[in-house]
C-alpha cells in the first residue's frame, strides 16, 4: 500500500507544482458554462430549468481536459517501465492515477459547481441534490476517463481520440445524474437514481483498473 500512496503523492505533488492544470479545469468549467446565458438570451426561467444539466455536462467536458496527460508523462520519460517493474501492480498504478485525477479535477469541480449554479440561476432548492449527484457522477467520470487514457495512450492525436472514445460512455452517467436532480425538482425521491450511480461507481471501480492494466501491458511491449 505504501507504493500506492507514494505514486498518488507524487502525482498530486506534480499536479500542484504545475498548478495550472487544476486551475485551467475549473476556469474552463466556469467559462464554458457562463456562455449559456449569453447564447440563450436573458430568460431566467429557461436558465433555471436547464442549469443543473449545463453544470453536469460542463463537468463531464472539463474532466476530459487533463486526461490525455494522465499516463503520457510517465510513458515519455520511462517512468512507466519502472512502475511496471515495481512491486505495485499495474492495476493499482491505474487506480492511483484515477484517484489523483479525481482529486485534481472532480473535487475542484464540486467546489466550483455552486458558483456556476449561481451564474445560471439554479433554483436554491436544487443545490444539495446537484452536489450530491456530482459527488456520485465525478468518480465514474474519472474511472472511465482513466480507462480511455490508458486505451489511447501512445496513439497519435490521443487527446482527440480519447474524447471520441469516452464521451459516449459518459452519457448513461449524465442521464442518471440528471435523473436524480430532476426527481428532486419534481418533488420525488432521487434515491433510485443515486443508488444506480453508486452501483455504477462500484462496478467501474472493480473493472476499470483491471482493463487499464491490460491496456498498459499491451502498450509496454
Amino acid at each position: 500500500m505504501n507504493a500506492f500512496f507514494a505514486l498518488l503523492r507524487r502525482d498530486l505533488r506534480l499536479g500542484f507544482r504545475q498548478g495550472i492544470d487544476a486551475l485551467v479545469v475549473v476556469l474552463f468549467f466556469l467559462a464554458a458554462g457562463a456562455l449559456f446565458p449569453f447564447a440563450l438570451g436573458p430568460e431566467p426561467q429557461l436558465l433555471a430549468r436547464i442549469a443543473a444539466g449545463i453544470v453536469m455536462a460542463m463537468a463531464a467536458l472539463a474532466s476530459l481536459l487533463s486526461l490525455d496527460r494522465l499516463f503520457a508523462g510517465d510513458l515519455e520519460d520511462g517512468s512507466l517501465d519502472g512502475l511496471a517493474l515495481s512491486p505495485l501492480s499495474l492495476e493499482l498504478v491505474g487506480l492511483a492515477k484515477v484517484v489523483s485525477h479525481w482529486l485534481m479535477t472532480g473535487l475542484p469541480l464540486l467546489v466550483a459547481a455552486p458558483l456556476l449554479g449561481l451564474l445560471l440561476n439554479l433554483p436554491a432548492s436544487l443545490y444539495p441534490i446537484l452536489l450530491l449527484a456530482l459527488l456520485a457522477v465525478t468518480p465514474a467520470l474519472s474511472l472511465l476517463g482513466g480507462l480511455g487514457a490508458a486505451l489511447t495512450l501512445g496513439a497519435r492525436r490521443g487527446g482527440l481520440l480519447l474524447a471520441f472514445v469516452i464521451l459516449p460512455l459518459f452519457i448513461p452517467i449524465l442521464i442518471l445524474g440528471m435523473g436524480a436532480v430532476s426527481a428532486v425538482a419534481q418533488g420525488e425521491s432521487p434515491l433510485s437514481a443515486l443508488q444506480l450511480l453508486l452501483a455504477l461507481d462500484l462496478a467501474f471501480l472493480a473493472l476499470v483498473p483491471w482493463a487499464m492494466a491490460m491496456a498498459l501491458r499491451q502498450l509496454l511491449r
Partner: peptide, 13 residues
C-alpha cells in the same frame, strides 16, 4: 533492477 535508456526523472520535482 532495470535501467532503461530513459531516466524517469520528473523535471518539476
Amino acid at each position: 533492477a532495470y535501467m532503461g535508456h530513459l531516466d524517469a526523472l520528473k523535471p518539476q520535482l
